[in-house]
């Protein structure tokens, strides 16, 4: 994200963050406009075509993003978006969560969940191993029972579950 790009010592500025978000929404708007263009955005014989609404929605996003960009440029450059130390706190959650989400596809949901809870409790909470293990294994096990056994909803599973024959 943009807020990590131009720091001013103690943290990224609100101004840069605003500009970054405005540029992002502008990019999004352009993608929407392009996508609508692909499916046709005219007014056909029987009312609007598939891209009609998204096209104007995209245009609106672009126009308003430019307004926000202009306003972002006028922000006081001294205001902070957040301090670096705060952002580090955020990253402490964000990084493990990102790894977790990416691991769900190859490994299923259970193993990464155990790891995520364990990492949080051990690393951030500094709990003892027995308690950490109990909760880290107990919670996913409870979810297994509720979803797979009770409501018959299969959750994603990986090779480990296959070995266990679940």
């Amino acid at each position: 994200m943009s807020e990590t790009s131009h720091g001013t010592g103690t943290g990224p500025t609100q101004r840069n963050a605003e500009i970054g978000v405005a540029l992002l929404t502008l990019l999004f708007g352009l993608i929407v406009v392009y996508g609508s263009y692909l499916v046709g955005f005219g007014w056909g014989a029987d009312g609007p075509q598939a891209g009609f609404f998204p096209f104007y929605v995209g245009i609106a996003i672009c126009v308003c993003s430019l307004i926000n960009l202009a306003q972002g440029l006028r922000e006081n450059p001294a205001d902070l978006f957040a301090e670096w130390s705060q952002l580090r706190q955020v990253l402490k959650v964000l990084v493990p969560t990102t790894i977790y989400c990416l691991m769900v596809e190859p490994l299923g949901i259970y193993l990464p969940s155990i790891l995520l809870i364990a990492v949080f409790m051990k690393w951030l909470g500094k709990y003892s191993w027995p308690l950490t293990a109990a909760i880290a294994i107990g919670v996913p096990a409870a979810f297994y029972l509720v979803f797979e056994k009770w409501f018959l909803i299969p959750l994603p599973k990986g090779p480990v579950e296959a070995l266990l024959g679940l």
Partner: peptide
């Protein structure tokens, strides 16, 4: 530090289902 990862797991399961 206990409830946050559990919420994250619940969110992930929710998004999946």
């Amino acid at each position: 530090s206990i409830i946050a990862p559990v919420i994250l797991v619940i969110c992930a399961i929710g998004a999946y289902t």
